[in-house]
Amino acid sequence: MLREILIIVIKKFIHQFASPKTYFYQVNRLYPWLLYISISIYISAIIWGLFFTPKDFVQGHSYRIIYFHVPASFVAQSLYAAMAISSAVFLIWRVKLAAYLARSIAPVGAMVTFIALVSGSIWGIPTWGTWWEWDARITSTLILFIMYLGLISLHNSFNNFDKADKLFSYLAIIGFVQIPIIKKSVDWWSSLHQPASITISDKPSIDPSMLYPLFMAMIGFAGLVACIVILSSKVQIYIREKNKNWVKDYV
């Protein structure tokens, strides 16, 4: 009995929240809170990381770019995973909001991946003595960037949104195979890039004085990127639902 009630409540919640209109108004309410909290967390993390953490024994002060590079790399991969999940939800349950979200994540993902590549390149100069190295992690991240661009190109080449969404979803799901490769590239291949400092199974190899601000930076950065995804998804809703009365009324 309880199980059935729970299923009905979940279904009702999903059904309501899967409506672009409900989503639109809900994120409108959430957006300012998320934005201000994320900015506060990220700025605090940056101040903590730049001024109140010790310098690294080997890299000196140059390691402090970690508070920008690591969150960007982490979010770049997470966004792809989110996009693939949204695509699967769209293909399986035909939730059109999931397709809007997947499409709106793609340009943000490309931007964040580009930031990760550029910040990594800048970090490479003092650490490795080179802007670029054809190393497994860096190359696979570059492939992720190209993958995002390919997805955007594919979607933009079709005028029929329904067809474009379906094809985009197929490619996004197949392309997800790149994510574990990027994640494990530093373990599978001998690489200039250091192995992961933070893993689920092991104790972090990074000192807590540097780790806590890094966690904060990751949370703040993810929040800021979520804000951009919200804005991007609102643009998608404007484009797709422009003929709906509620959009006309809202505008």
């Binding site: 190359t139 696979s140 492939i143 190209i146 993958m147 490619l171 197949i174 195979v177 790149q178 490769i181």
Partner: peptide, 10 residues
């Protein structure tokens, strides 16, 4: 080609 080449790289 643009969308397939990244998949061939592994």
């Amino acid at each position: 080609t643009l969308i397939t080449l990244p998949l061939t790289l592994p």
